[in-house]
């Protein structure tokens, strides 16, 4: 697994699309960072830029000292060469492939033996061994997300982008998968718009609103201005 202690991501990007403007400049070195913000804040757009799926209008992105995007120097490393895994709320498993083949898709470069070993390791991590031969249509939503996470982790990414991949799951499944993910020690940027969830996480938080980074720091510090709203939410929940 990548060394989370040596992890460092810095990004300074400006991007305009259909009347929406994103201007984000930040640097993270913590293993687990939450990107928090309301719907429409630009979280998914920011993640797609980091993943290399969108080229920003201008900006630079560096991961562990390597330049992934630099519009001035015309550097745009392809998504598959960034060492970044990306899982979204939509599992997006390849429907014509089995769970095992989905996980194998990104590790074609490994020998057959190494590939099998890696797939078994990930299936075991997510308790998905019985699902290996099934196709996505034969899996439940939670099972699909487990395979999607295993698929993203298979190539041993240096950094993981998680765009609310567990949002549709029940609380227990969500906690199990989060614990499995955090046990891996792969640095991750985890998107959430759930204030209560973020408050309870022991993580650094980046607050994105209307395309701008408004705060960055420990959850309790950064979310202090939202405390009253949070209390109302928790009270209502009880």
């Amino acid at each position: 697994m990548p060394d989370a202690a040596a992890f460092h991501l810095s990004a300074s990007v400006r991007h305009r699309v259909a009347g929406f403007s994103l201007e984000a400049e930040f640097s993270i070195a913590t293993a687990w960072t939450i990107l928090f913000g309301p719907s429409g804040a630009g979280k998914s757009t920011l993640l797609r830029i980091l993943a290399g799926l969108i080229s920003p209008g201008e900006g630079q992105i560096h991961l562990n000292g390597r330049s992934l995007t630099d519009t001035n120097r015309k550097i745009a490393v392809a998504p598959g060469r960034r060492g970044i895994g990306f899982v979204t709320q939509q599992a997006a498993l390849f429907p014509h492939l089995t769970a095992r083949e989905n996980i194998a898709f990104g590790i074609r470069h490994l020998s057959a033996g190494q590939r099998t070993e890696r797939i078994e390791e990930l299936l075991a991590l997510f308790g998905a061994e019985p699902l290996a031969a099934r196709k996505p249509a034969q899996l439940s939503g939670g099972e699909r997300q487990r395979i999607a996470l295993a698929r993203a982790l298979a190539p041993r990414p240096h950094f993981l982008l998680l765009d609310e991949p567990l949002a549709a799951l029940d609380a227990a499944s969500k906690q199990t998968l989060l614990a499995a993910l955090r046990s891996l020690d792969v640095p991750a940027l985890y998107v959430s718009h759930d204030l209560a969830e973020v408050w309870q996480e022991d993580a650094a938080v980046l607050v994105l609103d209307a395309g701008r980074i408004h705060a960055h720091g420990p959850a309790r510090e950064v979310l202090a201005p939202h405390r009253d709203h949070l209390l109302r939410l928790l009270t209502t929940a009880r």
Partner: peptide, 20 residues
């Protein structure tokens, strides 16, 4: 989203065409 995932997992144009 499938195209995105294939690209993220390292598929080039030919592999994308052939396998997805």
């Amino acid at each position: 989203a499938l195209i995105d995932q294939a690209r993220l997992l390292g598929a080039g144009r030919m592999r994308l065409l052939r396998e997805i």
